[in-house]
Amino acid sequence: METIKKKRKVLIEGPIQPSFIADSIAKHNTKTDIGAHAIFLGQVRADEKNGKAVKGIDYSAYPEMAENILAEIREEIFSQYPVICMHIYHSLGMVKVGEISLFVFISCKHRQQSFDALRDIVELIKAKVPVWKKEIYEDESYAWI
């Protein structure tokens, strides 16, 4: 089991690319003590609000504070679950409809541990991390959500 790790850079400018996700997964094939991976991908939805189509979300944050809180969440999850490996990446800036803005990747010996840890970490991110979202509509108007 991995102990508390150094703080990692987890805020990425723009959408999280599928190739980045695939590379992250591929790097784990040598870690033979892992029996289960659980992955959460947050994708920007094509919503309609007040008759306006969403074309994307512009994410902003106070990076140092967000990175510190994400590091605290990592430590909390590592202390509560037998997690072998954990990766968290969140977008900043414009992410268009259909693109990925949050990538959480948990690895454990067993699937239930991975599922439980993943659910808790995603809920903690949504509740605690100061990342603000501005929905951008097709007519270039916007609303903070």
Rank of each mutant, 00 (worst) to 15 (best):
S114P: 02
C85Y: 15
E2H: 11
G93Q: 05
E72Y: 09
P63A: 05
S19C: 05
R74W: 07
I84R: 00
T32W: 12
M86S: 05
C108G: 01
A26R: 11
F20N: 00
C108M: 03
P130S: 07
E75G: 05
E2L: 13
I12H: 08
Y62G: 02
F115R: 09
V44Y: 05
K133F: 08
Y137C: 01
E76K: 11
A66W: 07
D116G: 06
K9Q: 14
V83D: 01
I106S: 10
G14V: 08
D58N: 15
H87L: 09
Q17P: 01
A71W: 15
Y81L: 10
L118G: 08
E140K: 11
N50V: 09
F115I: 15
V95N: 03
S60A: 12
N50M: 10
L41P: 01
A46T: 05
R111W: 14
V131W: 09
A127G: 02
E64V: 15
E140M: 09
Q113C: 15
R45D: 04
L102Y: 04
E138G: 02
I100M: 07
K27I: 10
S19V: 14
S60N: 11
C108D: 00
K31E: 06
T30P: 00
V131Q: 03
T32A: 09
F115V: 15
Y137T: 01
K126P: 02
I12N: 04
V44L: 06
I25T: 01
A46H: 13
V129I: 09
F40C: 07
L41D: 01
K9T: 14
K128N: 06
N68Q: 09
D47K: 13
L124K: 13
D116S: 14
K52W: 13
Y81Q: 05
V129K: 02
I77Y: 05
K7R: 13
K55F: 09
H90M: 02
T32I: 15
G93H: 08
G42M: 02
L118S: 12
L41K: 10
C85A: 14
E138Y: 13
S19T: 13
L102H: 02
S101G: 08
H87C: 04
I21D: 01
A61K: 06
Q80T: 08
G93V: 09
A66S: 11
H37W: 11
E135G: 07
G14N: 05
K96S: 12
F78D: 00
D139P: 02
A117E: 06
K55R: 14
K55W: 09
L102E: 01
V10N: 07
D33Y: 12
A117R: 12
G35Y: 10
P130D: 03
I73M: 01
D33I: 11
I77T: 04
L118C: 15
I77M: 09
I106A: 12
H87F: 09
Y89F: 12
E64Y: 14
I12V: 15
K126H: 07
F40M: 06
I121D: 00
I69C: 04
I88R: 01
A66T: 08
I4W: 12
I21F: 10
A143G: 00
P82V: 11
V97Q: 03
H28R: 15
D23W: 02
S91W: 03
S101Y: 05
W132M: 06
D33V: 11
K52E: 04
I57E: 00
H28N: 10
E13F: 15
I4Y: 13
M86H: 05
A117S: 14
G51R: 06
K27N: 13
T32E: 06
H37M: 07
